[in-house]
Each structure stands twice: as C-alpha cells, then as structure tokens.
Amino acid sequence: MRVVQVAAVIFVFWLVLAVPLAPVDLVWGALVSILVGFWAAELLWADGAPALSLRRLAGLVIYTLELIRSIVPAALQVARVILQPTMPIDPVVIKHRMRLNHEFTRVALANSITLTPGTHCVDSENGVLTIHCLDEHFANPVRDGRLEDRITRVLQRETMS
C-alpha cells in the first residue's frame, strides 16, 4: 500500500517534468514510478503515509497561501534593517514551549516563525523551540501565542485525530 502511495507521488512529479505529454511518456512514467516506489517506500514515510482527507488538504492549501503571503512583510522588514547604516538590531535568543502536540503542526509552527519578520527557529527539542530574534519585540507574536492560534485554527482540527 505504501509503495502505491509513494509511486503516486513520484508519478505526479514525473508528470510535471514531462509536460507536453505523449502517451508513451505516461507508460514509461508509470513503470519507472512503480519501480522507484518499491525502492523509496522504505525511505519516504517510514512511519506510514499521512492519511489524506479533503478537509486536511484544504487546510494545507490555506496554510501554504498564508505562509507565502507572510514572506513578503518578513523580507521587507529584514531589508529595512539591512539597508539602514546603523543596523538597528539587538538579537536575543528565546525559548518557547509549544502547546501544539502534533509533529506536523509543530513543523508548521517552526516554518511560520521562520517566515515571519525578525524571527528564525534554531532548535526544537522536547516541545521547546529555540528562536533567534533580531530584536526583542519581534518575539511578541510567538510569546502571546498568536501564531499558534492561527495554526490551530487552520490545521489542528483536521490533524488532531
């Protein structure tokens, strides 16, 4: 079963690469995907593939769009810091204990933190994130749990199972 799932993912990637599609491409792609699937199933998703539901997929899409949108202000903020001659930064390293208890949502939180202005995840251990902040006040959305609330709203209700 896992082989089929991995093969499906590889096949989709093949489709992207082969785009002006000829029927021959489809046949070869399917064959190669299944072969590679046998080999890669051991490496990819060692603990079983994540179960896909439509709601979870929708949550993932919304989260991805929000993430992409959040890169823009983050990059602008960094740009403002870099381009000022005095470079107004006073870095601090903070620790944050996560309320999220699911591996997947924790990864999402770390990504969100890195792509919001002035914060970058450095380490994650036993549910505690180590975060490097360019300035103390950038840590506020993390400290007051705003980011975690947002991820809970979008992702958690589907992934809690």
Binding site: A75, H120, L134
Partner: peptide, 13 residues
Amino acid sequence: YTRVHAVTKCDAL
C-alpha cells in the same frame, strides 16, 4: 544567525 535571517527570507522571496 543574523545572516540566516536575511538569506532565508530574501532569497526565497
């Protein structure tokens, strides 16, 4: 660490 800040955001965007 501060360089990682700049690079992850500016390069991705």
